[in-house]
Simulated scan of single mutants.
Amino acid sequence: MTDTINALAVAALVAASAVLTWAVETRARALLARPAEPPAAEFQALPPGARWLVCHDTACGHMTTRHLPQLDGTHRCEYSARHRGAVHLTHTTTQGDQ
């Protein structure tokens, strides 16, 4: 009976040490692994005549957005399609930029 108990104790000890070794190795590998390189950012050229102006529309959250030149000399937010149709609350003349 004692031999059986000793054998079970040894088997449990071997199993526990194997699990503990696996857990430590896995955690050590995760800690020592080099993080993956993030992909490089792709920058786009600014269209000629574009300006960064505050957009006073709630769709843009009243933040500075890129405004593109229009044929009549005004500037319109590049996200104007998200605004309320043709209504745009931002001053688009040069007098409104000051």
Rank of each mutant, 00 (worst) to 15 (best):
E25L: 14
G49S: 10
A41M: 05
T21E: 09
L20K: 11
R29I: 02
V14R: 14
A33Y: 12
F43P: 02
G61P: 04
P69Q: 11
V54E: 12
R34G: 09
H67C: 03
A15M: 12
A30I: 12
T58P: 00
A33H: 14
A15Q: 09
A18S: 11
T74W: 05
A28D: 00
P39M: 09
L31M: 13
T65Q: 10
A23G: 03
W52G: 12
L20Q: 14
L71D: 03
C60T: 04
L53H: 13
E42K: 13
Q44P: 00
L71Y: 08
P35N: 14
H62T: 13
C55T: 15
L32P: 05
C60H: 12
Q70L: 12
P69M: 01
A12R: 15
T58R: 07
C55Y: 04
C55E: 13
A41V: 10
V54A: 13
A23H: 06
V54N: 13
H67V: 08
P39N: 09
L53N: 01
T21N: 14
E42A: 11
R29W: 00
A28I: 13
Q44K: 10
A12E: 05
T26V: 00
V19C: 04
E25K: 08
L20G: 13
T65V: 08
A15L: 07
A40E: 06
G73K: 12
R34F: 07
E37I: 04
A45L: 07
H56Y: 11
L20W: 05
V24D: 01
A28F: 04
E42F: 00
T58C: 04
C60W: 02
A36Y: 01
A50P: 05
V14K: 05
G49P: 13
Q70F: 02
T21D: 03
A59S: 10
V24C: 06
E37W: 06
Q44V: 06
P35D: 14
R34V: 13
R51G: 07
A41G: 01
A18Y: 01
H67L: 09
A36S: 06
A12L: 15
